[in-house]
Simulated scan of single mutants.
Amino acid sequence: MATDLTRVGPRLRAARQQRGWTLADLAGKAGMSISTLSRLEAGRRQASLELLLPLVSVLDLRLDDLVRGEPVDPRVRRATERRHGMVVAPLTLEHSPMQTYKIRYAAASVAPQPKVHDGVEWFYVLSGTIRLLLDGEEHRIGAGEAAEFDTGLPHSISATDDGPAEVVSIFSASGERIHVHGA
Rank of each mutant, 00 (worst) to 15 (best):
S156P: 01
L153M: 14
S57Y: 06
V167T: 11
R82Q: 11
G9Y: 06
E137V: 09
V110D: 13
S38Y: 05
M32W: 02
I141N: 07
M32F: 05
L55D: 00
L49S: 14
V67T: 02
T80K: 14
E148T: 15
A183G: 10
T160W: 03
P164G: 14
R44H: 15
P114W: 09
R68T: 01
G136H: 07
Y105L: 04
A159N: 05
T92K: 05
I178L: 12
P71W: 00
Q17K: 15
F123L: 12
A15F: 02
R82F: 09
R11N: 10
Q113V: 08
V8D: 00
P112S: 08
P154Q: 09
T36L: 12
R78Q: 14
V76E: 04
R39T: 03
A147G: 02
A15M: 02
R44S: 13
G175H: 03
L51S: 12
D4M: 04
L63F: 12
R82V: 10
R75H: 13
R75E: 15
T80D: 07
I178H: 01
V120R: 13
L66C: 06
M1G: 15
Q17V: 11
G152T: 12
V58G: 01
I157E: 01
S127G: 05
H181K: 15
A89G: 01
A108M: 06
A2S: 15
L153I: 09
D162E: 15
M32N: 01
L126Q: 10
H117P: 00
S127V: 00
H139T: 04
T100L: 08
H95C: 06
Y124K: 07
T3G: 13
H84C: 09
T160Q: 03
D150C: 02
R131K: 06
K102F: 01
L91H: 09
G175N: 02
R104Y: 02
L133Q: 11
A106M: 05
D60Y: 05
V110N: 10
V125Y: 02
W122R: 12
E137T: 12
A146V: 02
G69I: 01
S33T: 15
A89S: 10
D60G: 06
E121C: 06
A14C: 06
E50C: 00
H181S: 12
A159P: 03
M1V: 13
V125P: 00
V116L: 08
A24Q: 15
V76T: 05
Y105V: 01
I130D: 00
K115H: 08
R7P: 00
G20K: 13
D4S: 07
V72C: 06
R131Y: 03
A14N: 08
W122S: 12
H117I: 03
P71R: 13
A42S: 14
R78T: 09
Q18Y: 02
S57M: 05
V168L: 13
P90Y: 07
S35E: 13
W21E: 02
Q46C: 02
D60H: 14
S127C: 07
R19K: 15
S172P: 01
E137S: 11
R7V: 06
E148C: 15
L12D: 01
R75A: 14
D135V: 05
Q46K: 10
